[in-house]
Design a protein around this nucleic acid. Structure first.
Length: 293
DNA sequence: ACGATTATTGCGTTCTT
DNA sequence: AAGAAAACAATAATCGT
């Protein structure tokens, strides 16, 4: 936990006296001016039980939803510090450690959750999504599990599906294919899980706005920002003329980018634009045709 | 199960080099 | 003239309801 409100100067701004930062307040030893107080540390305690005076170590991982026990587990350390264990004592500690770790993830549901959460973390990071998406995805997985939706369906599918679903609710949509590409699940497993959750949990997902795709597609195609800006206008235009509903939003986004590129004389083929959206040139063309009227 | 959208394939046309 | 790109058409597959 980094120190908050650390004064930049080592001396008192009033009288240049020496500062005493040994307590919660940083105070000038000459005039008594309190330079900074506060110091409410919301983070986990840094101090180790073993050596209060010496080196500081984490007593555990930061609190997070993406670990099945929210990072609140205890562990038996591997490195022996002051005491050197030998012989039977050492074996005994090893045995305790093993049993402790087993007990930590006891039930089958917990084991599944551990596995799923690792997979969620992996997918989220591969898609370079923010932390809050990761945590929400984990929460969603918990709901799915408590509703008993997972039994008989693929665990990997659920891991991928909760990420996909969370992206949609958080307005940072990824296409199905983008998720499938990095997930350890097939498209069918993902949709099976997604459909089940949508049916039983009633996900708050509306149709995806094509604008959510524009920034990523634009950068994948190396398009300048003015083309992207024009494309967002075109999406708005499409909404007005009811060209969006019922269509593949990714395809429409690609069509807007292509149209904008043509308008601004930027070289871009339909095939390339369609490829980043994972649609065929034909679909792009149909949207492009509607757009240029 | 139905209607609409999209994919696939093939082919003649247009544009560029 | 050759090759790429865009356009068009017909059918199959898929999706949303």
């Amino acid at each position: 936990m980094s120190e908050t409100c650390t004064p930049h100067s080592r001396t008192c701004p009033e009288c240049d006296g020496r500062l005493d930062a040994s307590t919660d307040e940083t105070v000038c030893t000459e005039c008594g001016l309190v330079v900074s107080e506060n110091r409410i540390d919301h983070g986990p305690e840094w101090r180790s039980f073993a050596d209060d005076a010496g080196t500081r170590r984490r007593t555990g991982a930061p609190l997070t939803r993406s670990r099945h026990d929210r990072g609140l587990s205890t562990e038996i350390g591997y490195r022996d510090g002051a005491v050197r264990l030998t012989g039977r004592k050492r074996r005994r500690v090893t045995r305790m450690r093993r049993q402790h770790n087993r007990a930590r993830i006891s039930s089958k549901a917990d084991r599944n959750q551990v596995y799923a959460f690792t997979e969620i973390r992996r997918v989220v990071s591969r898609l370079s999504l923010p932390e809050n998406v990761r945590d929400q995805a984990c929460v969603l997985f918990e709901s799915a599990q408590s509703e008993d939706l997972i039994r008989g369906r693929s665990l990997e599918g659920f891991a991928a599906a909760v990420v996909y679903a969370t992206c949609r609710t958080a307005a940072v949509s990824r296409t199905l294919s983008e998720v499938v590409d990095v997930a350890r699940a097939t498209r069918d497993e993902l949709t099976a899980a997604y459909d089940a959750m949508n049916r039983e949990l009633g996900l708050p997902v509306g149709p995806v706005d094509p604008r959510e795709y524009l920034p990523r597609f634009a950068s994948a195609l190396d398009l300048p920002s003015d083309v992207e800006r024009r494309a967002t206008e075109l999406v708005a235009l499409g909404h007005e003329r009811n060209l969006v509903s019922g269509r593949n939003p990714g395809g429409f986004a690609a069509a807007c980018l292509y149209t904008a590129a043509v308008e601004l004389d930027h070289p871009l083929t339909q095939a390339d634009a369609a490829a980043v959206a994972d649609v065929t040139p034909v679909t792009l063309r149909s949207a492009y045709h509607d757009l240029t009227e």
